[in-house]
Simulated assay, not measured.
Amino acid sequence: MTSPLIQVEHVSKVFLTDEVETHALSDISFNIHQGEFVCIAGPSGCGKSTLLSILGLLDTPTKGSYTLNGRTMTGLSPAERTRVRGSQIGFVFQSFNLIAEMTVKENVELPLQYARVTAAERHTRVNEVLEAVGMAHRANHYPSQLSGGQQQRVAVARALVSRPAIFLADEPTGNLDSTHGHAVMELLQRLHGNGSTICMVSHDERFTELGDRIIRLRDGQQVGASVPDLKIA
Score class of each variant (00 low, 15 high):
R216Q: 15
E106N: 06
L217Q: 12
S65L: 01
N140A: 11
P61D: 01
S44Q: 06
P164E: 12
H141C: 10
G149W: 02
P43A: 12
L98I: 04
R125Y: 05
V92W: 12
D59H: 12
H123K: 15
G90Q: 06
E21Q: 14
C46S: 15
P78N: 11
F96T: 04
S53E: 08
Q150E: 15
A139T: 10
M185Q: 05
M73D: 00
S44D: 04
V8D: 11
R213Q: 09
E121Y: 00
M200I: 00
F30Y: 13
P228Q: 04
F96Y: 12
G134N: 06
E171Y: 05
L210I: 06
G220S: 09
L68S: 11
R138S: 14
L57F: 08
P164L: 11
A233R: 14
D18N: 15
E128N: 13
C199A: 15
T17P: 00
G45Y: 11
G224K: 10
H23D: 05
V227T: 15
H182M: 03
S26V: 14
G75C: 11
G224I: 11
V223W: 09
G70S: 06
T62N: 07
D27Y: 10
V14H: 12
D204R: 00
Q7V: 08
T62W: 11
R116E: 15
T179G: 00
L52D: 09
N31S: 12
A169E: 07
D204N: 12
I54G: 09
N140M: 13
F93Y: 15
R190I: 01
S65K: 08
S29G: 05
L168I: 07
L58G: 10
K48L: 00
S87L: 13
E21R: 15
E205A: 08
P61T: 01
G70V: 08
S162E: 01
T17H: 10
E9I: 11
A115Q: 13
N69K: 14
R116H: 15
A79P: 01
G220W: 12
H123V: 08
T124V: 14
D212P: 03
K48F: 01
C199W: 03
R85L: 08
T62L: 06
Q150G: 06
D204P: 02
M200D: 00
G42N: 05
V126L: 03
R138G: 04
H123Y: 09
S12W: 09
Q222W: 10
T72Q: 12
L146C: 05
S26P: 00
R71M: 09
G148P: 00
H203A: 04
V14R: 13
V129K: 13
R138Q: 14
L98M: 03
L217F: 09
H10N: 13
Q94C: 02
V126F: 08
E21D: 13
S26Q: 15
T22H: 10
K105N: 01
A139C: 04
G193M: 03
Q189R: 15
T82P: 02
S196E: 15
Q222A: 03
R158M: 02
R85Q: 11
A100F: 07
T197C: 02
